[in-house]
Design a protein around this nucleic acid. Structure first.
Lengths: 352, 352
DNA sequence: GTGAAAGCGCTAACAC
DNA sequence: GTGTTAGCGCTTTCAC
């Protein structure tokens, strides 16, 4: 730093010059700074000659507008916050990519916050958002800021556009982008039943989770539609992780009266569960059928290949980003967007 | 917007008030704005009484400093850019989490850019970085901005602190955080050889990739150390993806003279390859041993469980973030940090 | 269509 | 230890 905090930029080898500002461009193009600004933001309001001179000057100086100054003045950051419960969960990566590419095309950047179950982090990002560092946010964590613990008093209120993705937020008046979890779970259950399975175990997601509630409803719907009774004894607690799937497998292995099929509400759990069943000497699907949910990359290459429900993850991300961009640019957005799922039949489920 | 672009904040039901600024706090605490600023940045330089009044006023007003104004003035963004080749690759998620948590603790936010093989995106983020939107960057993509296509002329030069993670950047004079790929690959090769395997196939990463170059060297080292000849016929081209692993499996299946072990340089490829071998009726490790690299989550639950090299992914992320923070705060950082890997022995490799 | 000038909210230099 | 003030770089009235 040679100067009061300016960014430096080597122009010629060894000679350090401060970065070009709008004034430099204006001077070079022989116009006012206002015209430079307009040439960039609203070219149609600038004469072609002036515009050409400005563009040339920009090219010559390598001018890039200072975003902090722009934000300070215009109150727009062109940044979107994406709130995740867990960045290390592979389920999110394709969704993130869908979000990122759509945001990118519209000129928005993406800031990721991994809540990691930490209320401090959540408070931090709530403040961050309230401070105007982002124009909008996409919430994948199933609740609004500050709603994790109810009735905790209100921190700085968030007034920017918000969109909920995957995990709907019941009370919130914001666009919700999701799949029909209930219908999908019902479909899988009916598929299992149609193959002759009458004793179908259900490995749940975390208690209270909205996806879990919907999928569980779907499971019961499917049972009912197939004329099967609901047996609470066939419910096994899980939390969508590989580890909980392995634990669920233990549970099943030790039962004297084993179910003939297991519906795991995530592929991770299904893969973990299959691991445990194998280790116990069972074979799939001969001894027991296993179904998953999500269709992550590894579902197709698992041994046996996993029968599951495909979620259009990339499209979900794209749809959420599009909805948010609509809001950001003053357009309206449908309150609920539901994308189609697909029953993917592979080898882990067989007729009884 | 009721006003010239100010952010609004509901204070009481229905009444909308603009967000508190430093002046509001100063007035309420009966000090100057400078004192408020100091009370936040350098509390030790403010009298305890003044500080207490300021803190109280901040609590009362719900004041959150405007980051754009702060950045404009101080030339610091407290943002770090993380450049990834592919966000959807599950290998990165745990690394990202390591980065994020370390950055977060130090008060930095993280902006993710998924290059996605697109030169336009790369140019965009180079400009983005040059424009001063971030204080530093962590590069996971194996090259500096603008170096993807050589001799393409120089866009705005990046002068902020940079750190390379996982994929080293040979010519660059920046801290490199990585594992010893060569030693790890050599170790796995020797492990295979020690079990009696003399015909070991090698499934490579993308050509030209630095990880691939190092691991390939390690493979040859390991062969040499075990007294085995190097046979180019046992090299199979891959690119670290599941799909390329499946293709490599096809290659192996059709050989009349099959290798007895396959060293895949990513777990994804190993899992894909096992899928193909299974489908062809081979059993692992009875007919053929398969080894991976990385120890992703699914390696332990694959069937059979995958013998592989564990990379400390979270720690890699943390180390890179720490190194960058050191640079950002004017401290120096070692030019090369190498974290330990571990040979994880599971069931996919057996003695000949 | 263009320019002058105000000012976004903050920090840092300087004076006391 | 504290206040005054300039000004970071831009956009946006307002006047012409």
């Amino acid at each position: 730093m040679d100067d009061i905090g300016h960014k430096d930029r080597p122009e010629h080898e060894g000679i350090v010059v401060r970065a070009a500002r709008i004034q430099d461009v204006a001077k070079l193009a022989d116009v006012s700074t206002a015209t430079v600004s307009r040439a960039l933001a609203t070219p149609e309001r600038v004469s072609p000659e002036a515009r050409a001179r400005v563009l040339e000057a920009i090219a010559k100086t390598g001018y890039v507008p200072n975003p902090a100054a722009r934000t300070l003045r215009s109150q727009k950051t062109y940044m979107v916050l994406v709130v995740l419960p867990d960045l290390a969960n592979t389920f999110f990566s394709k969704i993130l990519r869908g979000i990122e590419e759509t945001l990118f095309e519209a000129g928005y950047g993406m800031i990721i916050s991994d809540l990691d179950g930490s209320p401090e982090k959540e408070a931090h990002f709530a403040a961050f958002t309230a401070a105007g560092r982002v124009d909008g946010a996409i919430l994948l964590n199933g609740h609004l800021f500050g709603q994790s613990r109810e009735g905790e008093g209100n921190p700085a209120r968030i007034t920017i556009p918000l969109v909920a993705l995957c995990e709907g937020i019941p009370g919130a008046d914001i666009p919700q982008i999701e799949i029909d979890n209930r219908a999908a779970a019902s479909r899988m259950t009916q598929h299992l039943a149609s193959l002759g399975h009458r004793s179908i175990a259900y490995v749940s997601g975390p208690p209270g989770n909205i996806l879990e509630r919907e999928r569980f409803q779907g499971f019961k719907d499917g049972l009912a539609a197939s004329g099967l009774p609901f047996d609470p004894g066939l419910l096994i607690a899980g939390d969508y992780t590989i580890e909980s799937g392995m634990r669920a497998g233990q549970d099943i292995v030790v039962r004297q009266d084993r179910p003939t099929a297991v519906f795991c509400t995530s592929d991770e759990m299904a893969i973990g569960l299959m691991r445990t069943l194998f280790s116990a000497g069972l074979s799939i699907p001969t001894d027991i059928s296993v179904a998953g949910f999500d269709d992550i990359e590894f579902a197709a290459v698992a041994e046996p290949a996993l029968t599951t429900i495909r979620q259009p993850r990339r499209e979900l991300g794209q749809a959420a980003a599009s909805a948010l961009i609509d809001l950001l640019q003053g357009r309206s957005s449908p309150k609920r967007i539901r994308l189609e799922t697909e029953l993917v039949i592979r080898d882990s489920v067989a007729p009884l």
